[in-house]
Design a protein around this nucleic acid. Sequence first.
DNA 1: TATGAATGAGGGTTCATTCAT
DNA 2: TATGAATGAACCCTCATTCAT
Lengths: 215, 215, 215, 215
Amino acid sequence: MSQIVEPAPSTRREQQKAAKRLALIDAALAVFSRVGYAAAKIDDVAEEAGVSKGTVYLYFESKEALFEGMVKAKMVPMIDDVAEILGKPNATAIERLRAHLTFFYTKILDDERRQIMRLILSEGPNFPDLAEFYYNNVLSRGHAMVNAIIQQGVESGEFRKMEGHGLMQNVAAGALIAGIWKQVFDPFQPLDLDAYFETHIDLILNGLRAQPGQD
Amino acid sequence: MSQIVEPAPSTRREQQKAAKRLALIDAALAVFSRVGYAAAKIDDVAEEAGVSKGTVYLYFESKEALFEGMVKAKMVPMIDDVAEILGKPNATAIERLRAHLTFFYTKILDDERRQIMRLILSEGPNFPDLAEFYYNNVLSRGHAMVNAIIQQGVESGEFRKMEGHGLMQNVAAGALIAGIWKQVFDPFQPLDLDAYFETHIDLILNGLRAQPGQD
Amino acid sequence: MSQIVEPAPSTRREQQKAAKRLALIDAALAVFSRVGYAAAKIDDVAEEAGVSKGTVYLYFESKEALFEGMVKAKMVPMIDDVAEILGKPNATAIERLRAHLTFFYTKILDDERRQIMRLILSEGPNFPDLAEFYYNNVLSRGHAMVNAIIQQGVESGEFRKMEGHGLMQNVAAGALIAGIWKQVFDPFQPLDLDAYFETHIDLILNGLRAQPGQD
Amino acid sequence: MSQIVEPAPSTRREQQKAAKRLALIDAALAVFSRVGYAAAKIDDVAEEAGVSKGTVYLYFESKEALFEGMVKAKMVPMIDDVAEILGKPNATAIERLRAHLTFFYTKILDDERRQIMRLILSEGPNFPDLAEFYYNNVLSRGHAMVNAIIQQGVESGEFRKMEGHGLMQNVAAGALIAGIWKQVFDPFQPLDLDAYFETHIDLILNGLRAQPGQD
DNA sequence: TATGAATGAGGGTTCATTCAT
DNA sequence: TATGAATGAACCCTCATTCAT
């Protein structure tokens, strides 16, 4: 009587499959980030994941599918981030904005997100699906969030009323540029992210703040 | 009297060579921008320039040399821009900043510069020379310029004193992001550059402005 | 009882790889011999070996490596020959020399060695490594061998004492020239190797022989 | 009026043409010898001759024609050599043979002939015309010459009677091998041509010499 | 005649993808 | 499922040859 205490084989198998899929995704991120989509070799991804070349094709139909699958998989946590932020308890608009930007910077410090962001900027035109997916699931939510905060600040008198076309991009721009800078120019002109963050938050908050003697 | 001396044959040939070199550079920009460095084919560059494949190699040693030569050639006008801006007559710091950002946006509207900028961000890690060249000749000058204007503004009482690590990046960030946005997300979320510009300048100027009741 | 254990799968694969490597080496010898190194096409080698072009690169890093690998592989039997000859039982110097030259001619009759020899003479200046390898492993041993035989002959009174700079080359020259002739001039002036061999051995033995009335 | 003391233009032109053709032939020998036929570039020949690439095609129809033309042109002096030797006053067969081999070695010392010889051996199979031309005009005459000398020696009692298939090749082999050795193995195993020559002539003369107590 | 810019076929090499084991 | 050998299309680059000047 072979006691089947363990999870049923199929379940275990599925777990193993899922684990290997994740390993491949991590490997793919590493390799694609290192050299870009076109210069990345399936062989290198396989090696980085500790499997053979053929195995990659058991999990992804093609190089393109691997790239898109990886990017989408890696976007999920970002979407969760936004959801998490939105769920946070209310406070003043200034505090919320500061909290959100802090949160964003914390995330940007994370290598993975930075790399995904840059991959989308780099390869976006060749993968419009990904760019659109990123816009729909990440950027547009950030957009809505920033608008909501500003709306709240305006109503509470914390912020002045601004027209706002491109407001989200402008508010977030500093953080995005920081992420890009880290990857492109840091080797010969390092950026101190903490100090940079202070400058950014200071500039933005002052830029938004309602001012006594203004219209 | 009536002898209109034509340019010496050698000169004419050299002119033609120079013209063809420029044509190749334009073609290279078009092709590399379209698909990125790795996916670009020399054949396509040749066709775009109206010459045969072999001809490309009469002007550039390799695909890499073509890419680097093209980027550097296209950077020259940017360097000139900075020089031109620096030479403009003085005014209040606010006016100068507005003028410079306006100038920058005008340039960003230009397709070529946008594309070069994106190519450097995309391919920078694979071409560190180019990234460094770009930093040294374009970004660092912009940096110095922004710092000088803010210094002037602080002295004239227009701007409050800011610490400033990453100030240049934060001030310029909005514009850079606009350039990137145009190329990546514009197809499904168009950006109105004029309105965006107003938001940017408004935010930054208010962010920098000295405020009566503040420390 | 009836379990005939097949070679482990890994062994079988390795055997197949080794076999294919040999096939490629044979194909390479055929093609390089036919047209020389520079004019040989990897495609032709692949076709001759019955594989596709890409497969060649699974076994050899480059055309150059294929050529060098092939030549070195084909030299091994020559090295073994020399070793074999050296191990033969002693006899008179005359008998030994005759035996060795006979052996050498037998080998020269073999197409492969002839071709390798000619390839080294033809491509040697472009592949100094190969020429040196050939000298160190084949020629220098032949040299030592000839010298030893002559030494023996001198001591036994069979041969007269000769100074000997270039003695090996002179003794072997006839055979080498025969090999070259076969490949270059045979089509319009065929060489009867058997008769040629008799002339050679006769001339050399008489040339070396101690002579009663001489100094 | 205009004194035409100089040779007529056409004659001078022809002289210039002939001179340039010779320059091209010398350049071609240099380049082909250096790297072999296939790896030689017309551009290099042109540069070595101090003309432009296009000019080569004014004098030779193609790369192949240049190679063949060069080799044939360089063979002419060799043919003259043989004629010169044949015209020399008679003497004993031994003296004639020694004189001819000396003459041959003197020529072999000459770089040009050595190179032509090696080019024919290397490229012969790809240029059967050249090999045949060389055989007909150079080798076969050498053959006849050696046979004549031996015939004379036999008749005069200096040489023993030998069957002689391949006699010429065997007699000359040492010298040919010396020429090849110089080009292929000399870098790492230099050959002292003078000493080598003594060994060769000594071995051959003794090999041919009539011997009192032999059959 | 001489030049050298232009051409484009050709070949070495890479790598995504397939498939027998 | 996993492997990795095999494939062959694709692409960079070279160079013999042509031709406008």
